[in-house]
C-alpha cells in the first residue's frame, strides 16, 4: 500500500467515523465538534487528491466560519442534551429505512460491479488544484455561473438584512 492510498484510507475512515458521531451524539456541542472533525478529515481527503485550494477553503469556510456560527448559536441558546425520540415506527420511518437500504445496495452494487482499480493521480492534477488554475477557470470558462451564484448570494444577503431589520421600519 503506497503512502497516498494509506493516507486516503485513514482520512476516509476518520471522515465516516466523525460523520457517524455527528448523528449519534446527544450533546449538541459534541455533535457540532464531530462535524468540525469531519470537515478536517475531508480537508485531508482533498489534499491527497492534490486539491490544495479547495482544502484550504474547506477549513476556512466550513470549519472556520459556518461551524463557528453553529457553535456560537448552540452556546448562546444554551441547548441541553437532545431527548430520546419516542417515535413509533410509522409510515415515515418505514419508507425512510427502505430508501436507505436501497441507497446502500446501489452504492455497493456500483462499486463492486466494475472495479476501476487504483490508478495514481496524473501529474497534471497538481496544476489543476492551485488557486491560479481555479481562478482562471472561474473567471473565463465558468464566468456566467459564477456571476449567477454571486447574484443569488447577494439576494440572500439583502433578504437576511431585511428580515433582521423588519421591526425598525
Amino acid at each position: 500500500m503506497t503512502t497516498p492510498v494509506l493516507l486516503f484510507s485513514l482520512f476516509a475512515i476518520g471522515a465516516i467515523a466523525s460523520a457517524v458521531l455527528t448523528i449519534t451524539r446527544r450533546n449538541p456541542v459534541a455533535a457540532a465538534m464531530s462535524l468540525v472533525g469531519h470537515f478536517f478529515m475531508l480537508t485531508g481527503l482533498y489534499l491527497t487528491l492534490n486539491a490544495q485550494f479547495v482544502a484550504a477553503v474547506q477549513v476556512l469556510v466550513y470549519a472556520g466560519a459556518i461551524m463557528v456560527l453553529v457553535v456560537f448559536v448552540i452556546m448562546l441558546l444554551n441547548v441541553g442534551n437532545e431527548q430520546h425520540l419516542s417515535e413509533k415506527p410509522g409510515m415515515r420511518k418505514t419508507v425512510g429505512t427502505l430508501l436507505a437500504v436501497l441507497f446502500a445496495a446501489q452504492i455497493i452494487g456500483v462499486t463492486t460491479a466494475r472495479p476501476t482499480g487504483m490508478t495514481a493521480l496524473p501529474d497534471s492534477s497538481v496544476a489543476i488544484g492551485t488557486t491560479e488554475a481555479i481562478g482562471q477557470s472561474l473567471f473565463t470558462t465558468y464566468l456566467f455561473p459564477f456571476e449567477a451564484v454571486s447574484i443569488l448570494l447577494l439576494a440572500a444577503l439583502i433578504g437576511s438584512v431585511i428580515l433582521a431589520k423588519r421591526q425598525l421600519s
Binding site: L60, V71, F72
Partner: peptide
C-alpha cells in the same frame, strides 16, 4: 513554497476561535 500558505494562515486563525469558545462553554 506552499501554494496556499496565506489561506492556511487565515483558516487556522478562524479555527482558533474553537479553543476560546469551547473553554468558555465547557
Amino acid at each position: 513554497d506552499m501554494n496556499v500558505a496565506l489561506l492556511v494562515i487565515l483558516a487556522m486563525t478562524s479555527v482558533g476561535v474553537y479553543g476560546v469558545a469551547l473553554a468558555g462553554w465547557s
